[in-house]
Amino acid sequence: MSTAVNEKRPLGGKRKHSAIKPSRILIHLMLLVLVVVNIFPLYWMASFSLKTTPEIMGQEKVLNEETGKYVRLPANHVGLPRHWEWNNYPEAMKTANMGKLFLNSLIVSVFTILLTIIASFMATYAMTRLVWKGRKLMNKFFMLGLTIPIHAALIPVYLILKRIGLLTSTVEIIPGVLYLSHLSLIIPYAAFSLAMGILISVGFMGDIPYDLDEAAFLDGCGVWGIFFRVILPLMTPAISTLGIYTFLQCWNELLFATVYISDSAKFTLPVGIQQFFGQYTTDWGKIGAGLVIATAPTLIVYVLLSKKIQAGFMAGAVKG
């Protein structure tokens, strides 16, 4: 797509290309400034994660051999660490219980994605492939969900879940991994991803030729057979788009997670690191290490899958 536009430009541009050059350099310069603005806070975060607080604050003193006096070293904010304090990492890992936080967030995300995909594929199938009165209206009804803020559900769902004891339940569905009370996050997250899930699925399912349904029907498939044997296998591209969208919705969610989960063993990543920051307000190195550990996996995955992830973001927005 991009090359098509690029190739066409010089043709109609009447050799404007060379005239534009200086302004192009200016544009590159501006963009590079933005790149620095984008990257610098992250570099700074990584750099102070490897320093001690005294080094950052300029409270570090060294012995001057000639005079025999202690001299204060200047504060080191931007530079590389004078001595690399790798210890910050295992300590942050341990005190914040990062492994567990990651596992909890991952489990909640995976099950949210599963639930969202199942519910939205099934509903989309019913609304686009099955013929019944009111299916258009039903689609509009689901699209209401795009405007309803997640905050609407916070208190009513909280009161109900608290009443039935789900929030304080100690039951473990998969011991040490999936807790029953994680359902209190999975279900609302899935519900709030549903509208976008259906929107995305409608787009993808519309691309599957209807002839396939008819052929399968003539071969003796019922509505369930068509769904499982024809539609589902062809919906795999939608799974990645929808999965990425849903993942980004729930991986970083804080409001529900912080209100609904009170047991630190069940904390998701945002809640856990929030607590961790609260405990270590003055130990800069440790906080920096915590920040880096919490950010790194997301960024690594992003570097590997950047195109897919960007597509996942756009799929919903452009159609919505």
């Binding site: 639930l115 199942i118 519910a119 939205s120 099934m122 509903a123 199938y125 019913a126 609304m127 099955l130 019944w132 039903m138 009804f141 689901f142 209401l144 969900g145 309803i148 609407a152 559900a153 208190i155 009513p156 769902v157 279900i187 609302p188 899935a190 519900a191 709030f192 549903l194 259906i198 509505v223 769904f227």
Partner: peptide, 19 residues
């Protein structure tokens, strides 16, 4: 039709509309 809609409808009505 109802069965296919059921999971989405349940989620939607209990978590988004009723609240």
């Amino acid at each position: 039709v109802l069965l296919f809609l059921l999971p989405a409808l349940l989620l939607f009505c209990t978590i988004l509309i009723a609240p």
